[in-house]
Structures are given as C-alpha cells and as structure tokens.
Amino acid sequence: MDATVKPAARGISMPKNHPFADRWNHNSQQYPRVAELIADCPLVLDVGCGEGTLARYLAEQGHQVVGIDPDSRVLPDDGENTHFMIGDATGLPFADDSFDAVVAVMVLHQTRLELALVEMRRVLRPGGLLVDVGYARNKGIGERLRSAADIPGDLVARIGATRWEPDTIKMDALQGWSETRDAIQGILPGASWERISGWRYLSVWRHP
C-alpha cells in the first residue's frame, strides 16, 4: 500500500464516542475509518450504497458523493452533495478515471467479485483510492479460530449502542477469507488487506 495511506489505529470504537452509536452494526462501525482513509478525495463513488447512510455521512465530511445500487426499493432521493442512481457494480455507467475514490462496503461477496473490481479500478483516477470493506466465509480451522477471536471485542463494542439493520439485500459469502484476499490482490496488485473487527476485512488500493 502507498505509504501515504494511513489506516486508523486498531482497536475498539466505543459506541458512546462513535458517530453511529444510534445506528450500530458491523458496517456502520467502520464508516469513520472509511472516511478517514479518503479524507483528501473530493469526488467519491459509493458502490452498493443501499439506503445511502455512508454516502450521506461522507457528504457531511465535505465530499461530493455518487451512490449506486441495483435495488431501487432502498435508493434515497438526492441530497446536499449526494446523487443516487440505479446501477450494478459489474457495469458501472461512468467514464474511465471519473472518481478520486471508490468505496464499497459489503458488496463484493454479493456480486461477481472480479468484474466488480475491474470496473471500480477503471473508474478510479490515477492516484485515487479504492477502499473495500467486506466479509467472507470461514473455511478451515484457521479461519474459524480467527473469526471466533472477534467475539469478545464485538460484545464490548456493542455496549451502549442501538442496534440497527437497514432493509437492504443481504447474501451469504461463498468465498473464504484467503480466497477473497487472493482475488483482490490479484486484480489490484499492491492492495493492502487485513482482518478488522466485526468479522470484516479492509482492503485499500491506490491507483498508480
């Protein structure tokens, strides 16, 4: 990963200090970290934006955000610095080099991962960031043990939080953690990849 990309410090974000304490789930838990990573990226594409919570949050931080999702039921109306549209991750309706950052949260396991990554890479400007938060299926004892290690931290992180689940499409992952990592790094050479809290991974790639 480019040395200028500095992930947030590891650890548990306590809900009482978290901007999504009243809308807490394993995705919103990571939204501040996503925002920190793309702080210097003016124009952002949120792939698989769902009902727009992340997109609106990024807009509040000063970004111009385009959200795209195939589920018309949940797409919100446009708002200040946000524009939402129907579309699919495997065929993004944008020209090459259109965005300073592309973010995707819990998207790749629900689509054709390789095609989606190629499309997100295509619309990203040179020097831009691709930030992907996702999860995978436990395959093998090592992956099961690693996922079990998330349980204590998750119990602590929920203290004082209000559980929230938006009405968005949810699918189980088919690929394992190492399979997902290898697929991402095969298409995005040099991408970082790490397991983070809440049974998620974080991958960051800077377009050369």
Results as ranks from 00 to 15, higher is better:
residue 1 M to I: 02
residue 1 M to S: 12
residue 2 D to C: 03
residue 8 A to W: 09
residue 10 R to Y: 08
residue 15 P to M: 14
residue 15 P to L: 13
residue 22 D to V: 00
residue 27 N to I: 01
residue 34 V to L: 15
residue 41 C to P: 00
residue 41 C to V: 00
residue 48 G to F: 09
residue 50 G to H: 10
residue 54 L to Q: 07
residue 55 A to M: 05
residue 63 H to D: 07
residue 65 V to F: 15
residue 78 D to I: 01
residue 83 H to E: 13
residue 84 F to R: 08
residue 88 D to T: 01
residue 89 A to Y: 08
residue 95 A to C: 05
residue 98 S to Q: 12
residue 102 V to T: 05
residue 103 V to K: 12
residue 106 M to F: 03
residue 106 M to K: 07
residue 108 L to G: 03
residue 109 H to D: 06
residue 117 L to F: 07
residue 118 V to F: 12
residue 124 L to Q: 06
residue 125 R to V: 02
residue 126 P to L: 13
residue 127 G to A: 08
residue 127 G to S: 07
residue 132 D to P: 00
residue 145 L to D: 04
residue 146 R to N: 04
residue 146 R to L: 10
residue 147 S to V: 01
residue 149 A to H: 06
residue 157 A to Y: 07
residue 158 R to K: 15
residue 158 R to Y: 05
residue 160 G to R: 08
residue 160 G to I: 02
residue 162 T to Q: 14
residue 164 W to N: 04
residue 165 E to Q: 09
residue 170 K to D: 06
residue 170 K to W: 09
residue 171 M to K: 12
residue 171 M to P: 00
residue 174 L to M: 08
residue 175 Q to R: 13
residue 177 W to P: 01
residue 183 A to D: 08
residue 185 Q to Y: 09
residue 186 G to Y: 10
residue 187 I to E: 15
residue 189 P to W: 15
residue 190 G to D: 11
residue 191 A to Y: 08
residue 194 E to G: 02
residue 196 I to K: 13
residue 197 S to W: 14
residue 197 S to G: 13
residue 197 S to N: 11
residue 201 Y to D: 05
residue 201 Y to P: 01
residue 202 L to P: 01
residue 203 S to L: 08
residue 206 R to T: 02
